[in-house]
Computed example of a mutant assay.
Amino acid sequence: MFILSLTYTARLSEVDRHIEPHMDWVKDGYDRGIFLASGRKNPRTGGVIFARGTRADIEAIVAADPFTIHGVADTEITEVTVTRTADGLEGLAE
């Protein structure tokens, strides 16, 4: 599993100009079965996405994010080997 940590590098007004295409990109990640959970950081400085796939798949999907394309966010990709989960989340373990 991968944790994608997005950090805004531009003002929120600039980020918001790209939010609709970014959310379409997020929806596509879910539709493709890559994204498992996502949400905004609080305070609103970026977001976090839990994803699955190969590192090459994840790097490619991050490169296609409108936030990446337009340079309004940086994304840190962290690979995690899940070995224990709460009841109901067993599908996250590898």
Rank of each mutant, 00 (worst) to 15 (best):
G91A: 14
V62L: 04
E76D: 13
H70E: 13
I34L: 11
G33F: 10
L92M: 11
R40G: 05
A37I: 10
I58A: 01
T83S: 06
E14W: 08
D65T: 01
G91D: 14
F2I: 13
I3K: 00
L89H: 15
A63K: 13
I61Q: 11
Y30P: 06
A64R: 13
A64T: 03
I77M: 11
G71M: 06
T68Q: 01
R52H: 14
R11E: 15
V48A: 09
G29S: 01
H22T: 13
D57F: 04
R40K: 12
R84S: 04
S5A: 08
L89Q: 14
T9P: 12
P21R: 03
S13A: 14
T78S: 03
H18S: 10
G91C: 01
G88F: 01
T81M: 02
V72N: 12
T7H: 15
A93T: 12
T75R: 04
N42Y: 10
I3P: 04
A10W: 07
P43Y: 03
T7E: 15
R84F: 10
S5F: 13
F67M: 08
T54S: 15
M23D: 01
G33R: 08
K27S: 10
S5V: 11
R32P: 09
S38D: 05
I19K: 15
A37D: 00
G47N: 09
I49Y: 05
P66T: 03
M1C: 07
E79T: 08
G88R: 01
I69W: 10
A56H: 14
L4R: 05
L36S: 04
E59N: 09
F2A: 05
G29V: 05
A64V: 07
L4I: 09
A51H: 02
P43C: 07
E14T: 13
D74L: 06
F2E: 10
F2Q: 05
V80R: 09
L6T: 00
V26A: 06
V62I: 10
V48G: 04
I19G: 07
I49K: 05
P21F: 01
V15K: 02
I3N: 06
I69P: 10
D87P: 15
A60F: 02
L36Y: 07
A10I: 03
P21W: 05
A60T: 04
I19V: 15
A73Y: 07
E14H: 09
T85K: 08
N42F: 01
E20F: 11
A64K: 10
R44T: 10
H18A: 00
A93Q: 11
S38L: 07
G88K: 12
N42K: 04
